[in-house]
Amino acid sequence: MSTATDRLSTVTEPLDNALHPIAKLYNRTLGGYFGEMNGLQFLLIVGSLVAMLTVPFWGTFGLVRAMTLASIWAIFAMSWDIQSGYTGYISFGHSVLSGAAAYTTAMLIHNVNPEMSMAVTIPVSILASLIVGLLIALPSLRLSGPYFSLITFVAVLIFYRLIPSFSQYTGGETGIQAVDVFTYDPLARYYYMLIPMLVVAVGLTFIARSNIGLILMSIRENEDAVNAAGINATKFKVFSFALSSIPMGIGGVMLVHFYGGVDPTTFIVVDRSIEMIAMAVLGGMSSILGPLGGAFFLIVLRDFILTDIAGLSSPARWTIFWGLVLAVLVFARDGLFRKLWHGLDRIGGDRS
């Protein structure tokens, strides 16, 4: 293994050396806030960013649509990660948070005022997601182990069952299809979804690299030690859930305007939460950018490569989807993108 690594280093060393001055400048200015990188890691980040920003100009319509949807799911995966990946408290109820925002938007437009401005619906919807998040977090995060996960799972079931009970407002099982999409222009729609995703990624990465992120990871490793150090672990767990609720609300608003409507099957069921977990697991939990990469990889694989290129049926696509997640759990539990990142760290040069 070391011989193969040495050979690879021989090939990549000139490229890493060429990029070292730029990476060094980044490390001196922003590395303390977002993490230091060597030349190869810097190339991966910048190359990925350039690819995302330019895909409408070289990609097909199917690829652009898949990347548009992936931007929304990347927000969900990163939001789940800042709570569950960092604290170790695994939530199965995050679809409730995005669903709360989506339903708030739809109900405001459908039941209150069809002409209501997004300047009103968007902040109100995000606030609704935050409130629902606190309602789940405050009682459940005082528990530990599987009890927290069970409560978040039950929250999804309760929310799902409440929707038909208030069908005059929620549209019941069929949902509400009265929400305008942001735009029908695929180019504009792509950037409407991509830019907020990048802002969320930068914000969550900054927080994750701060002392707050360190405390959250410490809770995951040894919560008793955190409390013994005089830090209220429960307060930080509630904070992480509330923090997670805000971008979940943003993603929920984006998704309802992407589809032009909302229904319980698309937004609420626990399957949606498990898909978020799958993306975070595939990319690499407790890394923020890992779940981002996992979301893009899985959505593009499912909705473009397996659909448009391979032409596979829905059952076949989902079988491959979950088979890949299972393989990662067995053979690369740290996630594909974390593995790639650490590999670039080993073969790259000095960061200083």
Score class of each variant (00 low, 15 high):
residue 3 T to G: 03
residue 53 L to K: 05
residue 118 M to S: 14
residue 5 T to K: 14
residue 335 G to M: 06
residue 91 S to M: 08
residue 181 V to D: 00
residue 114 P to E: 04
residue 278 A to T: 06
residue 184 Y to R: 11
residue 210 S to G: 05
residue 147 Y to R: 10
residue 184 Y to T: 03
residue 143 L to Q: 14
residue 118 M to V: 04
residue 139 P to H: 15
residue 81 D to Q: 07
residue 117 S to F: 08
residue 247 P to N: 13
residue 181 V to M: 04
residue 334 D to N: 14
residue 215 I to F: 08
residue 183 T to E: 10
residue 145 G to N: 09
residue 299 I to H: 03
residue 273 S to F: 00
residue 300 V to D: 06
residue 289 L to C: 05
residue 225 A to V: 09
residue 154 V to H: 01
residue 304 F to I: 02
residue 350 D to S: 14
residue 307 T to K: 12
residue 144 S to N: 14
residue 126 I to V: 15
residue 237 K to Q: 11
residue 217 M to S: 11
residue 196 P to L: 13
residue 14 P to E: 00
residue 211 N to T: 12
residue 198 L to G: 04
residue 331 F to S: 05
residue 49 L to T: 12
residue 248 M to K: 07
residue 190 Y to F: 09
residue 212 I to Q: 10
residue 218 S to W: 05
residue 188 A to W: 09
residue 215 I to V: 15
residue 23 A to I: 03
residue 87 T to L: 14
residue 56 P to Y: 03
residue 22 I to G: 01
residue 228 A to I: 05
residue 87 T to V: 11
residue 20 H to E: 06
residue 278 A to M: 06
residue 16 D to C: 07
residue 318 W to Q: 07
residue 78 M to V: 09
residue 173 E to L: 10
residue 40 L to K: 10
residue 143 L to Y: 13
residue 233 A to Y: 07
residue 116 M to V: 03
residue 221 E to R: 12
residue 220 R to C: 04
residue 303 D to N: 00
residue 174 T to I: 05
residue 198 L to R: 03
residue 298 L to H: 08
residue 125 S to Y: 11
residue 220 R to H: 12
residue 16 D to N: 14
residue 341 W to I: 00
